[in-house]
Design a protein around this nucleic acid. Structure first.
Length: 223
DNA sequence: GCGACAG
DNA sequence: ATCTTGTCGC
């Protein structure tokens, strides 16, 4: 279950249009997940390190970590990020000994040109509940949310609400939340706030980001 | 037609 | 993503 690796942009877009039908937007998804995973990928030219960190949903303490090395198989193209990161992430998740109740991705989910961002892609391939948390704007328009943590505004694309711009820290740049698979938007935002007791980004994102970079330096597994 | 564009 | 030091502020 790694998904096909397209050779062209047209081929990749066709795969997204096909897999989009498998996304489960019914939710609701976990409100108090026991285990929450964070995934991220770090690069060094052709080499890459994909990491998955599983945290206890209540204490936010790290429960398990996995890092796998690999090679870039698809250049970065806005809208096709998943083809660059998902294969290695699926490989890393396959090595987990515990099953996450929720997976927090770096990037977008439904808020995507074809409504099938990285979070949706990883969700469909693993079957797990996923959400996307982006650090910068990608698609859609939105009013700037109030300055207090917890404030949010709707992210709209072509007349559809595809996500929320959520303030996780008072007076700090907000994050872009969109659902991936088997989780609704309200539940996704509740979880993001639960994962940001102190920093702008979810603990899951921070731990997996640090882990992937460390894996790159230590020349972890390779392919 | 010309930019903008998750990571 | 990645290239990159110190510095201002809570």
């Amino acid at each position: 279950m790694r998904g096909r690796t397209p050779r062209t942009v047209a081929e990749a877009e066709a795969i997204q249009d096909e897999l989009r039908a498998l996304v489960d937007l019914a939710g609701p998804g976990p409100l108090r997940p026991a285990r929450v995973a964070g995934v991220d990928v770090a690069y060094d030219g052709e080499r890459l390190a994909a990491a998955v960190a599983v945290l206890d949903g209540a204490t936010l303490e790290v429960v398990e970590q996995v890092v796998v090395g690999g090679r870039v198989a698809f250049d970065y193209v806005p809208g096709l990020l998943a083809f660059r990161e998902v294969p290695a992430l699926v490989e890393a998740m396959g090595r987990l000994t515990v099953t996450p109740d929720l997976v927090v991705c770096d990037g977008y989910g439904l808020a995507h040109p074809r409504r099938f961002g990285l979070a949706c892609h990883l969700g469909v391939l693993t079957g797990l509940p996923t959400i996307g948390v982006g650090k910068t704007a990608f698609v859609g328009s939105y009013p700037v949310p109030a300055a207090e943590r917890g404030s949010w505004s709707e992210l709209t694309l072509d007349g559809d609400v595809v996500g929320r711009v959520l303030r996780t820290r008072d007076g700090v740049k907000p994050v872009f939340v969109s659902v991936g698979h088997r989780v609704d938007l309200e539940t996704a935002c509740h979880n993001v706030l639960a994962l940001t007791p102190r920093y702008r980004l979810p603990e899951t994102t921070r731990v997996s980001d640090q882990l992937s970079r460390k894996g790159l330096i230590e020349n972890v597994t390779f392919e």
